[in-house]
């Protein structure tokens, strides 16, 4: 489903270029549940942003579902993000003035889903995530765990095939983090491909496959035994 060939990302830091992601190969099949670990600054978010079509690589090739993405116009990339990819951000990134319901409504709105179809879809997602009672609350009135779940609801309301979660438990305590991870595991069981960045080794251990990044390089990939034991 995801196929990176020598994908590289460089940033210009002052005068000298800085390689955030060394040329990287990575293949992820549909239905996988993958944890990305690594120290801070190792390029995990960079990798996720590239996979999520939020960023363009400076070199290499990225195929999403067999489709090369280098030459796609911005418009087409946005359309792919809309329909294909759900993104959960480390910092929630909820719109403060909108209620939980309205935040979840955003992707449906952007995708042009008719109004009357939205309500049942949003309600179903919120119910699944256990947020039905707080649907009309604003992010400021919700706990961190609730906000993260709103963010997940927003990421999955379009029923994307690919869910990218950048440290979805980073701001949460143990219990709330566990609940979020269970949620992601449930989504994966239902067929969604899930890529999750995490610093938490326990959570990573629950994933069927783990990759570890250090200084922009994949130094460890544990697909074989994970897959065979699954």
């Amino acid at each position: 489903m995801i196929r990176l060939d020598a994908v590289e990302k460089r940033y210009q830091l002052g005068a000298r270029p800085f390689t955030a992601l060394q040329p990287t190969d990575l293949e992820v099949s549909a239905g996988e549940y993958l944890a990305i670990t690594g120290p801070s600054g190792s390029g995990k978010s960079t990798l996720l942003n590239l996979i999520g079509l939020l960023d363009r690589p400076d070199a290499g090739q990225y195929c999403l579902d067999g489709q090369a993405t280098e030459n796609l116009q911005e418009e087409a990339r946005a359309a792919l993000r809309r329909r294909y990819i759900g993104f959960v951000f480390q910092a929630f990134h909820l719109v403060a003035r909108l209620s939980a319901f309205e935040n979840v409504e955003l992707p449906l709105m952007l995708a042009g889903v008719p109004r009357r179809e939205r309500r049942p879809r949003i309600e179903a997602v919120l119910a699944r995530i256990g947020l039905s009672e707080v649907a009309e609350h604003r992010p400021g009135q919700l706990s961190g765990g609730q906000n993260q779940r709103v963010a997940i609801a927003r990421a999955i309301v379009m029923n994307p095939r690919l869910l990218l979660a950048d440290e979805p438990t980073g701001n949460l305590d143990q219990a709330a983090g566990a609940a979020v991870v269970e949620l992601l595991e449930g989504l994966n069981r239902d067929g969604m491909t899930v890529l999750m960045v995490t610093h938490n080794p326990e959570l990573a251990a629950r994933c069927r496959r783990r990759i570890r990044l250090v200084d922009g390089c994949i130094v460890e990939d544990s697909p074989s035994w994970d897959r065979s034991t699954a």
Partner: peptide, 10 residues
Amino acid sequence: GLLKALGASA
């Protein structure tokens, strides 16, 4: 940025 990440076109 969020809207764009969610798939809003320019």
